[in-house]
């Protein structure tokens, strides 16, 4: 199942951020979106996560236009996408409750009410998928801790598990490791590769070139005039087709 942006234009308050951007996130592949800060990487990911409709252009999921369908259809699409932000933004609850959130909102209201009542009487129902997702990021032991008691790195790992727990078709990661130490970064990167093995398509916005080289199958370079180059990671880094890509990778482009 491929998530695609096709000739997308978007801006805020009359200022253009994205101009004619096209790229695709196919299943079982990691796409790194690299580019300097403020170039529109987050805006692009938010469009792909269906937060907003693009001003022009199309977002397609499985070759189906997302914004021409009904609101219910759009909700179905949204529920096949997971997103992790630069900040963990965990809910004020236990780690387990955070990891279960995506699964919980997909249940019927009666099912949710039953779970809430079980939790209230001290018999919280355990969700296997959420525990497996926590295991992927090595935090199953902390399932019953308050999320507020976690370190920044652990919190981000929970945020990743929270998006992984409901097995999305596509994962969108907006600079998820930019504030993390090398150990937590490695855990997240391994979890990304694990998600890829399960057939999940991953798009990760990063300005860490080494990270892109380590985990991405393809790289899209976004330099303010739309995506200027998309290709295999090795090709983009070793012999880029566009001179601006080479200059950006070599640190010669100043923004």
């Amino acid at each position: 199942m491929t998530l695609e942006a096709i000739d997308v234009h978007h801006g805020y308050d009359g200022e253009t951020v994205l101009e004619g951007v096209s790229l695709s996130v196919p299943s079982g592949e990691v796409l790194a979106i690299i580019g300097p800060s403020g170039v529109g990487k987050s805006t692009l990911l938010r469009l792909l996560a269906l937060f907003d409709a693009p001003d022009r252009g199309e977002i397609e999921f499985g070759s189906e236009r997302v914004w021409t369908g009904s609101q219910q259809r759009r909700l179905e699409f949204r529920r096949r996408i997971g997103m992790v932000f630069q900040e963990a933004s965990l809910f004020d609850a236990t780690v387990r409750r955070n990891a279960e959130y995506g699964l919980r909102v997909r249940q019927s209201w009666i099912g949710r009410l039953r779970r809430e009542l079980s939790a209230l009487v001290g018999m919280p129902a355990e969700t296997i998928e959420a525990m497996e997702a926590l295991e992927t990021v090595g935090l199953q032991e902390k399932a019953n801790q308050d999320a507020a008691s976690l370190s920044g790195g652990e919190a981000q790992r929970v945020a990743f598990a929270r998006a992984l727990a409901y097995e999305p078709d596509v994962l969108l990661l907006d600079e998820p490791t930019s504030d993390l130490d090398p150990r937590n970064t490695a855990v997240i990167e391994n979890a990304v590769l694990e998600a890829k093995k399960r057939g999940i398509g991953v798009a990760i916005a990063t300005h860490d070139m080494h990270q892109a080289e380590r985990i991405a199958d393809r790289v899209a370079v976004l330099l303010g005039d739309g995506v200027i180059e998309v290709g295999d990671t090795e090709t983009v880094f070793e012999s880029p087709a566009d001179e601006r890509t080479r200059k950006f990778i070599d640190g010669e482009l100043i923004y």
């Binding site: 809910f91 909102v105 998006a163 409901y166």
Partner: peptide, 18 residues
């Protein structure tokens, strides 16, 4: 309540009610 937290709920598949 931080917008990030509300965005997270939406991104995880929450409706406006969620």
């Amino acid at each position: 309540v931080e917008q990030n937290v509300r965005d997270a709920a939406y991104a995880l598949g929450g409706t406006r009610v969620d």
